[in-house]
Design a protein around this nucleic acid. Structure first.
Length: 222
DNA sequence: AAGTCGCT
DNA sequence: CACT
């Protein structure tokens, strides 16, 4: 079973998920303590909310964002917005410890010049999930996606270029980071329903940070 | 009418 | 499966 492939991964090891896709096991563990207070401030300024898909259904996962651009979804589609539609205000600034972690993780995975301007923050309570999808709303697909797992464990699905392609199941724990870009940038991915549990630091939830470059290539969105 | 960062 |  695929779980056996991942069963004995040492902290700090890098596991290749594709030509340009990596699981960096435990990469965020050291940074997590500095990250969590900053994250708490972000969430206070821009609370989690349930967005609707263009199909008109509410996502089970709750989302918010920080950075100069935030990911939003409604009946009109997916897009990046400069303002939080719930408040009309700018998204909270991306805290430096978050940005630096993302840049370091990208570099460790072979993407040395990652400058994220958006961080989508997803909150998974037990039972919630995210079905297979592509991240394709960013203009510069040369920049990777950096995904940081915090709190409860989950099973990440890493698929192919078509939704129907078989997906690899990747167990993710608090502190794990997945990076994908280049030829793997548009691979379908998702998260299986999160199992009930309580994490010592985060309680009954998993929080995923996905860092992206959502503004123009190389440009200074801020 | 193909596709759904959907659900059962 | 049902909805857009």
């Amino acid at each position: 079973m695929s779980g056996d492939l991942f069963a004995g991964i040492a902290a700090g090891s890098r596991l290749q998920l594709g030509d340009q896709a990596w699981l960096l096991h435990g990469f965020a563990l050291a940074a997590a303590d500095a990250l969590l207070p900053a994250l708490k401030d972000v969430i206070q300024a821009a609370p989690f909310r349930h967005m609707c898909t263009p199909g008109g259904r509410a996502m089970s996962v709750a989302t918010t964002s920080c950075g100069t651009l935030g990911w939003v979804s409604d009946r009109g589609g997916y897009r990046y917005a400069r303002h939080d539609p719930a408040s009309g205000r700018d998204w909270p600034t991306m805290p430096a410890p978050m940005r630096e972690l993302a840049t370091a993780a990208a570099a460790a995975a072979g993407f040395p010049d990652f400058r994220p301007d958006a961080c989508l923050i997803n909150r998974y309570r037990p039972g919630t999930r995210l079905s297979l999808h592509q991240d394709r709303d960013e203009p510069d697909l040369g920049q990777p996606i950096v995904s940081v797992s915090l709190g409860l464990p989950a099973t990440f699905l890493f698929g192919g270029m078509a939704r129907s392609d078989r997906a690899v199941r990747v167990p993710l724990d608090h502190g794990d980071v997945v990076v994908w870009g280049g030829v793997d940038r548009l691979r379908f991915h998702g998260v299986l329903p999160v199992a009930p549990g309580v994490h010592p630091q985060l309680g009954a939830q998993r929080i995923n940070l996905t860092f992206r470059r959502a503004g123009p290539a190389g440009g200074t969105t801020a």
